[in-house]
Nucleic acid binder design. Structure first.
Lengths: 184, 184
DNA sequence: TTCATTTTTAGTAATTATTCCTATATAGTA
DNA sequence: TACTATATAGGAATAATTACTAAAAATGAA
């Protein structure tokens, strides 16, 4: 079933509300509670729940690739041919503002987004740039050095690992650049 | 003493080599070994040692602010009025390629650079965006979970702290957005 | 010291990623 | 059903970064 977003100005179309129902049916059981939690988060933030927002959230949380705006845009366009790039970009920013998504810290010139809202860490492959989520309990609460705890208010502690993923270990030294500071 | 870079095409000027001497004299004792190490690193990488490169490296390592390209450009222009933005940007990229500088991982749309080559970590202020270097020995070698060590080749482990710096703790909740993933 | 060669740079243009604008559509409430 | 405030589509603009190329310069050999 074709899933429409808004159409060109001046052309009234049947409401998307009915089609939103169809869209929800496509999500299956496992996604329901996540999508419902998303709607609750929108309501709490005073935001309207639009089919575009639901589709963008769904595309992001259904991806393990930490996609760029353009990747999410291509994915959502398959269901919503008239969606605009700005809607996807603006909505991803909105999701980040309400805590329903996050920009992944990195050194690329293009932003990547994370739809995984549970505690986790990232492993970044230096070669293929893949970002893999993992969760290591002790990384949730690395102890803050006393000298900093007395000087700053530490709200978050992040551990990130970098190296070569299992797919790239056959050629680990190809195409490598050192581009991040910190431990070496 | 005015410090010239290259001048407009078609206008021969006296060599910069003499003025490079003057530039070096400005640096003082503490910077000499660092600048010399930089020259060694250039030679090892097969790169020419140009006054532009020395000035850009000097501006970066003399800054604790993790500056953007434009900030380094403004700083270097004070000594080299004819330097081009592309030279600064290209040279910062070159410094990163040879390990004489690093792009700081982050979520901003503008890149920031780090000239601190020693082991250290970053504290990022959520409010004022300041990045503060610190070194906490145990963060140099956080243990990698066995399940990852068996699956990936971990080349680097980074710990980053985020929160409010001492200057911003009087108004910690102003202007805050959640934009990074990971531990919360 | 001079000359030749390769690399680098200045000035400018182009590309890419992101944001802005506004008329219209729509979600949500009364 | 109607109204209002918010969101969107289509298009334009901005900002950050990269590319191009003629000329300058760093470097090494003679």
């Amino acid at each position: 079933m074709e899933y429409f977003s808004r159409v060109s100005p001046g052309k009234k179309q049947e409401s998307l509300r009915v089609k939103m129902g169809s869209f929800e049916n496509k999500m299956g059981q496992a996604g329901d509670s996540q999508q419902e939690a998303f709607r609750q988060r929108c309501r709490s933030a005073g935001l309207r729940i639009t089919p575009q927002r639901e589709a963008i959230f769904q595309a992001l949380t259904g991806s393990v690739e930490h996609p760029t705006v353009d990747t999410v845009y291509q994915e959502v366009r398959r269901l919503m041919p008239h969606i605009s790039f700005d809607t996807v970009n603006r909505t991803l920013n909105t999701l980040c503002e309400i805590g329903a998504a996050f920009v992944v810290p990195g050194t690329d010139n293009v932003r990547r987004f994370d739809g995984n809202l549970s505690d986790h860490q990232h492993f970044r492959c230096i070669k293929c740039k893949r970002i893999v989520d993992f969760h290591h309990g002790p990384f949730d609460n690395v102890p803050v050095p006393d000298v900093l705890a007395g000087r700053f208010i530490v709200m978050r502690k992040t551990v990130c690992l970098e190296g070569f993923c299992d797919q790239c270990t056959t050629n680990p030294m190809d195409n490598v650049t050192q581009t991040t500071s910190g431990n070496r």
